[in-house]
Amino acid sequence: MSSITISKSIKNVWDGGEDVLPMNASYGKLMMWFFLLSDAFTFAGLLITYGFFRMKYPSFEGALESYAFSPDVWPLASKVFTHFPLLHGVEIPLGFVALMTLILISSSLTTVMAVEAGKKMNKGSVEKWMIATIVGGIIFLSCMGWEWSVFIEGINGVKATMSGNPYGPTIFANLFFIITGFHGLHVFSGIVLNIIVFYNVSIGTYERRGHYEMVEKVGLYWHFVDLVWVFVLTFLYLI
């Protein structure tokens, strides 16, 4: 009799029933956390590769006034990313990327508000904050598109492509496209997921289910996109 009880309890644990919560988290939330961990490994692979090449090439040394782009020296981000929309001829080093960072951080905060509203079962408020998050994501992605177009335009008619660029070593532009592109893909899929969850919120799916945990899960993904941006920003633009 006792052996039956033991095997039943083991079955319950590994089947993941309604009453069993490994690590005290629901199945979906736990899987989201581990998916994000695996995604962190993918991004780390890309960023560590970037860091490797960044350190392998010499950095510019000397007065900033004498700075000139060279294929043998890793370019200074503060000299590459100086453009700002509607301000032609005005150089604002890293100004636009700072604005992009604030937009993404703001959309992370609206996600926090949506999750909180969900915990209070306030459907209208969840909808409002999710729309704000989606709009923030779309603005960020549009900014990235603008930045790519300026980056590709290059300097003095020399365009930046995967086979060469006017800023520095070829691998610099290659890694810029791959890393920011992969991050942009995450932002895009985050927007799509947010739209799907927003639709479900609107038709009352989670209201009927009795909880808004799905908003929390998609929120985790959105915060992760923001988290990755911290490191993309650090490696590609700041060091």
Partner: peptide, 25 residues
Amino acid sequence: SLSLPIIFLFWLLGVLFLSAIFYSF
């Protein structure tokens, strides 16, 4: 479960940075 693998990533980052300086062109 989440933080230990991340600590490993930072270790890898440090090792590869040092390797890059050592094998510099």
